[in-house]
Design a protein around this nucleic acid. Structure first.
Length: 201
DNA sequence: CTGGTGATCCTCT
DNA sequence: GAGGATCACCAGT
């Protein structure tokens, strides 16, 4: 299990170092594991794309101001959630958005959570859409508002280093932040090159 | 494969 | 009252 020191660093470094690590989610006796293949950094104080731009603190984003290693899970577009990991020192509202994972373990149960169907009933298109987006992976891992603000140091939800290192990292611009003026162009999105589970667009 | 669009409702101003 | 760190679906190519 990654410890607090791992997250209590420069957000861009954490976003890159999280690639290849495994998210572990225990729910109803099922162990779900997914390899992180795509992340985005949100550096509140200087980042117009962040909820916490200019250190603005609201009821929604207060978790971002907590110490490193907390889960910031917020509701978006009327029906979805996004999962972020808080980084850096307490009071500095920075986080890494987990944009995509590659399913590793507990895949049957992930399908059940996401499509309410058994694996054998799943179409090809549904298979590749299981976890290749920030809200898709939240459905597959059952991450919602009830977990907002928990830390990543219990069996419920944590990240571990499974020793997967053999890949190249692509750095590019973030997605769906057209409103963020110059911050649109910051190369703060990272993903594992050629990994099929990276989100499209 | 691509781009456009509707769904749906919480959050902040 | 407006809009969003998204997704699924549809039509056109």
């Amino acid at each position: 299990m990654l410890n607090k020191d791992f997250y209590k660093k420069d957000t861009l470094n954490v976003a890159k170092e999280l690639l290849g690590k495994n998210i572990v989610r225990n729910i109803n006796g099922h162990k779900l594991v997914g390899r992180i293949v795509e992340t985005e950094a949100y550096i509140g104080p200087f980042d117009k794309a962040a909820h916490s731009y200019n250190n603005r603190k609201t009821q929604r984003n207060e978790v971002m101001f907590k110490d490193a290693g907390h889960a910031y899970i917020y509701f978006i577009y009327g029906m979805y959630y996004c999962f972020n990991i808080v980084t850096e020192d307490e009071g500095k509202p920075c986080a890494v958005l987990i944009r995509a994972i590659e399913p590793i373990e507990g895949i049957d149960y992930m399908f059940k959570l996401r499509y309410k169907k058994e694996l054998k009933e799943i179409s090809k298109s549904q298979f590749k859409n299981l976890t290749n987006g920030p809200s898709k992976l939240c459905i597959a891992l059952n991450l919602d508002k009830s977990l907002n603000g928990i830390n990543l140091f219990s069996d419920t939800l944590y990240v571990e280093d499974a020793g997967y290192n053999d890949f190249d990292i692509v750095e590019t611009t973030r997605i769906n932040i057209d409103y963020a003026e110059e911050a649109r162009f910051y190369p703060w999105r990272f993903y594992i090159k050629d990994n099929p589970w990276v989100s499209q667009k």
